[in-house]
Structures are given as structure tokens and as C-alpha cells.
Amino acid sequence: MKQHTSIFFWLLLAPFALWLILLVIIPHIDMLGIALREQTAPREYAFSFKNFIEFFTEPLYWRTFMRTAVMSILATALTLLIAFPVSYYIAKMLRGRSKSFLFLLCLIPFWVSELVRTYGWMILLRETGVISNALQWAGLVSGPVELLYNDAAIMVGLVYTSMLFMVVPLVTVLESLDDDIIEASYDLGGNMWTTMRQIVIPHAMPGIVSGCIIVFMMTLGNYLTPNLLGGKDSLWFTEQIYTQFITRFNWELGSAFGILLLLLSSLIVWLGLKLSRQTLTSTMT
């Protein structure tokens, strides 16, 4: 390693420091400052917890907050349940070309804009959409059915959008599990379920935790999917933030909401890391 005093070190530190301080640290300190103030007269502000008190006293706000948290946890669990068998199939059942082909096929939809993916679900789910028509054609329903603008539609969209971020860490961790260990488990009299529970899942735990953390964060901060698939009553917390900032121009309350969302996200991530004894750096790389 080089000496600290080298001019190159300072030349490399400068862009890093400028980027991080100006675009990440100062803006968040400013946001906290605005969240903790109250307008007392035109252009006069005072320190106050008013915005946070408003959040806890107005049921619409904290209900939306809780609802976003619960639905994000549910979406994370569903994504894990759906992705695990698929990742296992790719990592353990396939070899060579078919393996890389199916893995790549898993990735390609996510290179496409989230807007396009969500638009696809709208075409599938709406009253005049593909699924409604297919159901009528099959004689299962007598008239058009509206499948859009409800919580199930939001859930489908969220799970779809998160899939990649679960499949990649799961495939990586499952590939590192030696086939011999699974065979040994069978030789010792284990069946499919005991092998799953005692060998595969404990081995896959780091991947499960990484996937869940990333999916949860992305779902919590999502705006497009609940907004387009859930319609007017989607009640997602990021929509509240948008409303306060852009429609109502109440930046103080909007900042307080932003801080609360950040706190919730950090708390769940921290819990996940503690429970699995991992660090943020190891999860992300």
C-alpha cells in the first residue's frame, strides 16, 4: 500500500468526497432540518416536532405507512416463495447451455424499463384486457371483469418487478452447495423435506437474507407499480410524499414522511442483518 501523503491519494479522494457530501450527505441533513421545523410567520421558522405529531395524529398518514410496510413484507415473502424453486432448478437441476439460457432469460425482462413492464400488466389485467377476455372465452365468467386497481394487482406487479433481485442471490448461493452433500443426506436416510430443511435452506440463508433485504427496500420505495396498478386507492407511502411535495407544496410534512420511510427501511435492513449476522457490505457485493 502507498503512503497517505501521496498527491494521488488526495486527487482520488476529492471526487469521492464532493459526490458523497454534496449529493448524499448534505441533502439528507437539509431534509432532516426541514422536517424538524414549523412556519411561524411568513419566512419565519422555528424548531418543532409538529410534522411528526401530525403524522401520528392523522390516521390516513400512519395507516398508509403501516399498509405500505405490511404489503412490502408480504411482497418480499411471496417473491421468495416463488423464486426459490426456480433458483433451485436453475442452480441444481440444469447443466451447461440450458442453465445459462434459463438464467439469462430470467434477467432479460429486467433490462426493460419498469414502466414498460407495468404497462404490460395493465394490458393483461384491465377490464378490456387479455385475461378478462380469455376468461370470457373459456366461459368462466359471463361479462368483462376488472382485475386492475386492487391490492392483488399491486402485489402481482411488485412481485414481478422484484423477481430478479431474489433470483440472482439465490442462484449464486445455491450453486455453491456441493451435490455430494445432498447425496450424503439421502444416503443417511433423509428424504426431500428433511434435506431441504436441514441442508439446503441453512446453506442458502445468506442469499435468502440478501435477496429479501434488497426486495423489501425496493418495494417500500416503489412508486410506479402501486400508482399504475392500484389506481386512486393504492395508498402507497411514496405517493403521500409526492402529494405533499408536488401537489400540496407542504415540504415540511413531506420531509418528515421521507425521514420516517428512511427510518423504517433502515430498521428492517438492520434487523435482517443482525438476525443473519451479515454486514451491509457483504450483502451488496
Binding site: V24, D30, M31, L220, I241, S255, L261, S265
Partner: peptide, 8 residues
């Protein structure tokens, strides 16, 4: 979250 990065 992207929305929060934006507002900050």
C-alpha cells in the same frame, strides 16, 4: 429509496 434521494 429513489423518491427520497430525489426530494432531498
Amino acid at each position: 429509496p429513489g423518491v427520497i434521494l430525489g426530494i432531498s
